[in-house]
Design a protein around this nucleic acid. Sequence first.
DNA 1: GACCAGGCACATC
DNA 2: GATGTGCATGGT
Length: 221
Amino acid sequence: MPSVDLHEIYHALLNHFRHRNWWPGDTPLEVIVGAILTQNTAWKNVEKAIRRLKEAGVLSIKGLRTIPREQLAELIRPSGYYNQKALKIKAFLAFLQREYRGNLTRMFREDTRVLREKLLQVKGIGPETADSILLYAGGHLTFVVDLYTYRVATRHGWVPEDIDYESLREFFQDRIRPDVELYNDFHAQLVAVGNQYCRKTPCCEECPLKPFLPPENIGWP
DNA sequence: GACCAGGCACATC
DNA sequence: GATGTGCATGGT
């Protein structure tokens, strides 16, 4: 892997995009539900679904546990894959009840690596969702890798295109000061800049959207 | 009307 | 182990 100064890049991004209000959520539970609902889905659609859950008064541990799956599916319909996601939310709540007596505070007291492994056992929770839950809902130190993280890192030649999730996560964690706030905002910055890149993988020839990192192509070979 | 979006599980080879 | 497919709505 090439040597990259990610702190320098972070500050360049921060200077350009300013602090991102990333992953707004009133409660840890709302963040967790959002993490499931946003799987391969635009955040705008997730916002609608969350609003409907709130309006129905079921965005609570008890509410989500007691609502019938069919009704839950109907409420989260705007976020897409609603039948699958209703099952996933139900699976998480069953897990929370079984392992932590339905208590999120108790769950997040768990050791990061132990909890990560346990979350990955829950049907519907893959590595990105697990890391989002850990970092954004629980304040645990784990870097979240997503489509944008991948797009930025590959487009700049920092990592090979066939890199897997874990290796990409390690790439960032090995190069960033271990700080939850930094992990949080760094990811947000990568999404901000990644949004301006060409969607194709690899980027098409003569692409008008050449990779850049403000202010002046930092990191571009 | 394509194409895309803050993935994941499962089938098949 | 790699590759393919279903899941589904809403914005551009």
